[in-house]
């Protein structure tokens, strides 16, 4: 198990997602009530991490990625809000995916391969759920701490549009993150030609 490679891969993915999210995507933002809503790439990276690795690692990734999102410019909200939100996302997605993996059946793909290479519908469902949970936790923490000026009525359409955009962006971000984790955890050994997923599972 290449823990250092996994850590480096996750760091690269989180940084790249952060940079893309604040520099490139605003050019294509969807305007909702004067706010440009962009896909939450960092959140999707956390979701992908939760899909590909274990819950503990996903929770920690969510915490640190959220903390980075909290203090890296142009963030101006209270520090810790995204950290809490993404930590919850990592934990919830990780728990749901991993705990239910065995319930599908002994001969199923999950049982054979674990959840290291999740099927696309599962990834999209995880992205949608993670987006909803993360945006909700972030918005609710803002309401509780009176950090955000918006009301629930204004937050809801933004959260729904963000959910939609996240699901679309997940089509690209989740496979990219899985590929990056796959590459960063490989140890240079020749890959089995038949079952690459199996090898990935074993190493993680």
């Amino acid at each position: 198990m290449n823990r250092r490679g996994r850590l480096i891969g996750t760091l690269v993915a989180v940084f790249a997602a952060l940079l893309l999210q604040v520099t490139v995507l605003p050019l294509f933002a969807w305007d909702v009530g004067g706010l440009g809503v962009v896909p939450d790439l960092v959140l999707l990276v956390v979701v992908a991490t939760a899909l590909a690795t274990d819950t503990r690692f996903a929770t920690l990734t969510g915490f640190w990625a959220g903390l980075l999102l909290d203090i890296a410019p142009p963030a101006d909200h209270l520090a810790g809000r995204w950290a809490l939100a993404l930590m919850v996302v990592g934990y919830v997605v990780g728990r749901l995916v991993h705990d239910n993996a065995g319930d599908v059946g002994a001969g199923s793909r999950f049982a054979r391969e674990g959840v290291r290479r999740p099927p696309l519908p599962l990834a999209l469902a995880a992205a949608a759920g993670g987006s909803f949970v993360g945006t909700s936790v972030f918005a609710l923490s803002g309401l509780l701490l009176r950090d955000a000026g918006a009301s629930i009525g204004e937050l809801l359409p933004v959260a729904l549009v963000a959910l939609l955009l996240d699901v679309v962006a997940a089509l690209a971000v989740v496979p990219a993150t899985l590929w990056l984790l796959d590459r960063s955890t490989s140890d240079g050994l020749p890959r089995p030609a038949v079952r690459p997923a199996q090898r990935l599972r074993v190493r993680l």
Partner: peptide, 14 residues
């Protein structure tokens, strides 16, 4: 611990 860390961070910042 992580939840508490988040909460502490928010409170300190607030």
């Amino acid at each position: 611990a992580l939840v508490l860390a988040c909460a502490a961070l928010m409170v300190v910042d607030k």
